[in-house]
């Protein structure tokens, strides 16, 4: 397993003479060679994928087989160049080098998939479409897919934002004020654990549009974890911080904004993270049932036509969007919680 990162290797290279004296030169050479071998292996795997597309005839009618094969050759060539000229390519070369084992695995997987579906039919069609038919969706049905993705993002963003803001404010008030806690806590206990999707029939009936109903449900799914974790964050702030702030002359309003909220922020982000996951589930279900747009709707529609390649294509887009949203949330968290760096590991 390559536990050395490429940057460590190059920094070792700077001390080449001392390394040689210490007798590590050989080890270093072996490490470099190992990287090259993985890189070349990755290139070969993609080459194999391309060849597997061309070597045997398709058992079905897929117009993109050749295009996929040539793209695979191009990627194989790219990996080969990046491996041999790693030093000259700088950061990009290092990146390819680091990902070489994954690129290799991906190439092997695609080759096997190609053989098992398009060439020999080991897996039943149409439930297991070959790679080229999924690529075909991206080339031929792109506008519709993009429209759906855009509709999903819009719906999700609106609901998530409302839910996060309302949840945060509720959490702070019940964490801070005994009166708010008295009234809101039982409601939260009663309604909170209910899955937001259980509201679907009522929401679609009572709200003027499917869109507003889904926004409400997504906000509900987001709001519950955000509320609970903000509340627990505010409630568990060490009283020493309040004591100190009060000896420094802080007024109650300052205690909330300058002590309670910053101290609770790590908890709030756990809530935002959990809310994000919950809201994705509601989004897709809402789109499958009521909303006439979005990726969930696209999935449902594709299933109706038994075009499983469209479903896989939509699933891939969905997964990219969801993991992108989580990455974005983590980036924001790392910026806001820079004071925790090295303390929290998740």
């Amino acid at each position: 397993m390559p536990t050395y990162s490429a940057s460590e290797i190059s920094s070792l290279g700077g001390d080449r003479e001392t390394a040689l004296i210490a007798g590590d030169g050989g080890l270093q050479f072996v490490n470099k060679l190992r990287f090259s071998i993985t890189g070349i292996g990755a290139g070969l795997a993609w080459l194999a994928f391309g060849l597997s597309c061309l070597r045997w005839p398709d058992i079905g009618d897929w117009p993109r087989t050749e295009a996929v094969a040539y793209t695979a050759f191009a990627i194989a060539g790219g990996i080969a160049i990046a491996t041999t000229a790693q030093a000259a390519l700088g950061k990009f070369g290092d990146g390819v080098q680091r990902r070489a084992p994954w690129l290799f695995a991906l190439g092997v997987f695609l080759t096997l998939w190609e053989l098992a579906t398009a060439k020999f039919g080991w897996l039943p069609l149409p439930f297991f479409p070959p790679p080229q038919s999924i690529v075909e969706v991206y080339t031929d049905d792109l506008p519709k897919l993009l429209d759906s993705a855009f509709a999903s993002v819009k719906l999700q963003l609106g609901g998530y934002f409302i839910g996060a803001v309302v949840g945060f404010l509720t959490g702070v008030s019940i964490g801070w004020s005994r009166l708010a806690g008295y009234w809101v806590h039982p409601i939260l206990r009663f309604i909170g654990p209910l899955p937001a999707t259980a509201w679907l029939p009522i929401a679609f009936f009572t709200f003027p549009s499917a869109w507003s109903a889904s926004t409400f449900l997504i906000a509900l799914a987001t709001g519950f974890p955000v509320t609970v974790l903000t509340w627990s964050g505010v409630a568990s702030v060490s009283t020493a911080y309040y004591d100190v702030a009060r000896t420094l002359g802080a007024k109650p309003s300052f205690l909330v904004t300058k002590v309670a909220i910053p101290a609770a922020l790590p908890h709030v982000f756990v809530g935002l993270f959990m809310g994000l996951g919950a809201s994705f589930a509601v989004l897709v279900v809402a789109e499958m049932i009521g909303v006439k747009a979005g990726l969930g709707f696209y999935l449902q529609w594709a299933q109706g036509w038994a075009s499983y390649n469209n479903m896989y294509a939509a699933l891939i887009v969905m997964s990219l969007l969801c993991s992108g949203a989580i990455t974005l949330l983590f980036k924001v968290r790392d910026r806001l919680l820079v004071w925790q760096k090295g303390v929290v590991k998740w």
Binding site: D243, V244, T247, L248, G249, V259, A263, L265, W339, Q340
Partner: peptide, 16 residues
């Protein structure tokens, strides 16, 4: 009040 400042054994610095 600010006229009587307190220093604690566990520092109680604001970590943020």
């Amino acid at each position: 009040g600010p006229d009587r400042g307190m220093v604690f054994q566990d520092y109680a610095l604001f970590p943020w």
